[in-house]
């Protein structure tokens, strides 16, 4: 039975990993052909990201958008989460639901809404439009992680701090914030990775002028495959694994994803 179980789990992971094994293999090809197993071994396609201006530009756009939009998402999420935690009234709940909504809907709907919006007010095709759109779209992730973090704070900690003479501000700065900080960071990291990978909103809002890596890949696909795409795919997969490993290293990942708190044992 245990054997059967391990076999099944392994099979799913092979299924999950299979495309990346091939793509990684392809990206090591010496010549500009997609052959697996690769012929020869070369890292030159990884270099293309830096040497070819349009790939480098796309990477730069992606990183700038991901960084700014996830900061924006955290800055939007933190006040809402705090307000919900402190007040828990109807308005707070409505705001929280509004923050969750972008993620519940098929993104193509949000993307079209934003496209029409930016076309109407001007700003379509601008980097800042993509940053704001991503920031609002991804607010769900830090909102969920920060709310979870706040729930883990024992209210008696705050009471104890107040009794010992701390002002509200000091309590927030010395007790609440340090306790919730890991959750803020993971919310930021989640948003960052998802912004890097997001396609449809970036495409609709500013796809023709502000090319991000996913847009660049899909555009290049129309003209045929190159090992550079494989290199990008591998780098993206590695970035995701790295970021989530860091979250797991510094936070309680199962807890973040809804498992009960770790047993005291």
């Amino acid at each position: 039975m245990k054997l059967l179980r391990n076999l099944f789990v392994t099979m799913i992971f092979v299924f999950m990993a299979a495309p990346f094994v091939v793509v990684a293999g392809v990206s090591f090809n010496e010549r500009k052909r997609l052959i697996f197993p690769p012929e020869g071994f070369s890292l030159s396609w990884y270099g293309a990201l830096w040497t070819e201006a349009d790939w480098f530009n796309a990477m730069q756009n992606s990183l700038v958008i991901a960084l700014l939009s996830s900061l924006l998402a955290v800055s939007l999420a933190l006040p809402i989460a705090l307000y919900l935690w402190q007040r828990g009234n109807v308005l707070a709940k409505a705001l929280f639901s509004l923050g969750l909504a972008p993620f519940m809907l098929p993104p193509v709907i949000t993307a079209l809404g934003l496209l029409i919006f930016w076309v109407t007010i001007g700003g379509s095709g601008q980097l800042y439009a993509t940053v704001i759109s991503h920031g609002v779209f991804l607010v769900t992730l830090p909102l969920v992680t920060i709310s979870l973090g706040l729930q883990t704070i024992n209210v008696q900690f705050l009471e104890a701090a107040r009794v010992m003479g701390a002002t509200e501000r000091t309590v927030f700065r010395t007790v609440s914030l340090p306790l919730v900080f890991p959750y803020i960071v993971s919310g930021f990291a989640f948003a960052f990775v998802l912004s890097l990978n997001e396609y449809i909103i970036a495409y609709m809002v500013a796809g023709f002028t502000v090319e991000t890596l996913p847009i660049k890949i899909l555009n290049s696909l129309r003209y045929g495959y190159t090992p550079t795409m494989g290199a990008v795919a591998v780098l993206f997969a590695l970035t995701s694994v790295l970021v989530f490993s860091l979250i797991a290293r510094f936070g309680d990942l199962p807890r973040l994803l809804g498992a009960p708190a770790r047993d005291a044992e």
Partner: peptide, 18 residues
């Protein structure tokens, strides 16, 4: 969970290409 999250967060574009 780390592996699943990594796959989940990957762009549809990259998954399609792969």
């Amino acid at each position: 969970l780390v592996l699943l999250l990594a796959v989940l967060s990957l762009s549809e574009v990259i998954i399609g290409f792969s």
